[in-house]
């Protein structure tokens, strides 16, 4: 009896959490894959098996291809720019004084604000007629922009918001990475008369690179999930210029109730995310080896 309980105890302890994961994360993934091979509109009682048709349709669907393209551009731009700015900032404001601490707090603050507020605030800042940004451009004698109102600039405007939101978080993580580099390495380099730039290239960069890779991957993964700013600021428009993969799934699933079709798009997203997840875990296991 006692022995049986000893065997069962760990399972009972993880059961509640595991149940949540299985019901709301693992099972839905399977169900989504299943749906992606079917044609279903939520109302009709039958789901018709259509094989790969949904996927073929996606492949021929310009709107889908556009949203994939938008997602890739958005991800590429926001990740690269965020990471570069964050690295520069981290090297610069990684100092223990109060002023720098305040700057760190300031740049981090957007990260804890609801994306709803950030989206609405930037919509207002980017208002083509009365917005603060156009006023600033004018103040410096620059041409005004249409921001979110034009298909040419809308996606880039969203990139700016994404960078503004996440650069502080990225910087602080890099600062944590920089601080974990033992200072004696720099002292040794100084004794070897290495210049600041050489020290950066030979010590800082190699030692910070695991953190940097890690950041790039989690940034990519979170960029692929972008939804809030799009839904509030542009609703995918104008002219579909800001629709992303997630927004496409949302629209086809929730507005048009093409559940099989939306699921197929979901599977595409799943595949992309899996690739980066595998990369992430490979990296994590590498990092464990370092220590």
């Amino acid at each position: 009896m006692n022995h049986l309980w000893m065997t069962l105890r760990p399972y009972t302890m993880i059961a509640p959490a595991l149940l949540v994961f299985l019901l709301f994360f693992i099972y839905p993934i399977g169900y989504m894959v299943y749906l992606s091979f079917h044609d279903w509109n939520f109302i009709s009682p039958d789901k018709n098996f259509v094989g790969m048709n949904n996927y073929r349709a996606l492949y021929d669907h310009p709107e889908f291809l556009q949203s994939v393209e938008n997602t890739v551009i958005f991800t590429l731009l926001s990740v690269v720019i965020t990471t570069v700015i964050a690295l520069l900032l981290a090297l610069w404001i990684n100092k223990p004084t109060k002023l720098y601490g305040f700057v760190q707090g300031a740049i981090f603050s957007p990260h804890i604000i609801s994306l709803v507020s950030i989206a609405m605030l930037w919509m207002w800042l980017m208002d083509p007629q009365y917005g603060l940004l156009n006023w600033l451009l004018e103040l410096f004698g620059l041409p005004q922009s249409e921001w979110l109102a034009s298909p040419d600039t809308a996606l880039y405007s969203l990139v700016i918001v994404a960078i503004w939101k996440s650069v502080g978080f990225n910087t602080l993580i890099l600062i944590a990475g920089l601080q974990s580099i033992p200072s004696y390495l720099y002292e040794a380099a100084e004794l070897d008369q290495s210049s600041t730039f050489t020290s950066f290239l030979k010590i800082t960069l190699p030692l910070i690179s695991p953190t940097l890779f890690f950041l790039v991957i989690i940034n990519v993964i979170s960029s692929f999930q972008v939804f809030e700013t799009i839904d509030i600021m542009t609703q995918g428009g104008p002219l579909n210029s800001t629709s992303t993969l997630v927004y496409f799934i949302y629209e086809y699933g929730f507005r048009f109730f093409q559940l099989g079709y939306a699921s197929a798009a979901g599977v595409v997203l799943l595949i992309v995310l899996s690739i980066f997840t595998v990369l992430y875990f490979l990296l994590v296991s590498r990092r464990v080896h370092y220590q």
Partner: peptide, 24 residues
């Protein structure tokens, strides 16, 4: 295995599973 399963959930965003969960 169970721990790995838990870790996999970590990487599944809500944006991916909202549709099937909604139906559920």
């Amino acid at each position: 295995t169970l721990f790995a399963l838990t870790m996999i959930t970590l990487m599944i965003p809500t944006q991916l599973i909202f549709l099937p969960v909604y139906l559920q």
